[in-house]
Design a protein around this nucleic acid. Sequence first.
DNA 1: TGCCACTAGGACCGTACGGTCCTAGAATGC
DNA 2: GCATTCTAGGACCGTACGGTCCTAGTGGCA
Lengths: 206, 206
Amino acid sequence: MTSDRRMQILDAAASLISERGFTSTSVDDVIKGAKLSGKSHFYHYFKSKEELGYEVLNRQFERFAERGLAILREPMIDPLERLGLFIDAVVALQAESGGRRGSPFGNLAAELADAHEGFRIRIEAVFERWASQIRSLLWEARPQLYDDVDAVRLSRFIIATLEGAVLMTRLKRDISVLEGIAVDLKRFIGTHVRDGIAAHHARDVE
Amino acid sequence: MTSDRRMQILDAAASLISERGFTSTSVDDVIKGAKLSGKSHFYHYFKSKEELGYEVLNRQFERFAERGLAILREPMIDPLERLGLFIDAVVALQAESGGRRGSPFGNLAAELADAHEGFRIRIEAVFERWASQIRSLLWEARPQLYDDVDAVRLSRFIIATLEGAVLMTRLKRDISVLEGIAVDLKRFIGTHVRDGIAAHHARDVE
DNA sequence: TGCCACTAGGACCGTACGGTCCTAGAATGC
DNA sequence: GCATTCTAGGACCGTACGGTCCTAGTGGCA
């Protein structure tokens, strides 16, 4: 049953949850947002609020995979350039909501990591898939990188910085926070590249 | 009335909130944690749960200022070295709770940034004070840094990365995530330093 | 012994939540 | 026209929350 109604519910829920958090989003809110007839209508499609949350998380990740992570796998573009484009895409995605939404994963992680093991595991899996995409890219780019580049550590650094930046952006309601951090992040990645650009030169290269 | 009881309540609340979040921590939980006799006892010290939350936030910041930010102002130590020590202190603070607690500010920010304007403003102020401490330090270190180092941007980058790293650490329940990111962060800061160490050399210098 | 001040402790209230179940009425088949 | 199926919509339930208020018991004092 991947009906329209189901999608409608998931969209409404995703929007509400990313704005107000999972706990603060009630089933009634979702019903109102998706214009359902009543509670029984909702529970026809989802067996519990928890299950709804899991599916919203899945859907958010799929969307992120399509619109963000896909860039990391573009075969016709140089891997490191792809990484830069991906970071730009994260900024653009964030700019869409005026920086008010935050990362759907980071928000849930902060809200539920300790309160709800089911979510914690699923969110961890999301970040792991994200990290593995970056690791593959770094592996692909390995001829251009210094030999001692630790792909696991660098991929974690990139993700943590982006998540932290999105959080700060949401808090300050100012997308330029993320933009600035994205620039620095790209520069940091540049310092791992073997073309011999020293750090203080890299700084000038956008 | 900065009584012991009050402190006891604040400690218990801080512990609960940093573990389970503000919304998921009930007043009854706090009462149980602080071993109060009943609700009226609690409401004798705090006029509402919201007010309790504000004071917990204040207290957490004061503790962080004493145990963390204080390092940034140590007058006898070279500023950049201080920055490294500060990052170490953040790691150590996080290790104390086994990486399970997360940042008291980042957690609240993610949980309440959009849901509760009062908290948002206060949390933003906390980060602003933190950022200003780093900016002062960078200003102090300015003779050692390249001329084009943007203190505002770099301070934001440092904070965002640390917050993101703490979030990831909590999610994965693995302190080594933060440790690795801290190493990279120090290296990134190193690339702003004028001593001519190129990035790929800096990598070897712990 | 009788009185008072104080507070521990809990009963209670209104609201909101997740979730279940029932009914009124429209659509369908004969 | 009548019976049957289906579902929109809401009434309802138990629980948990934030917050208020009252009672019963204790200790101090004359």
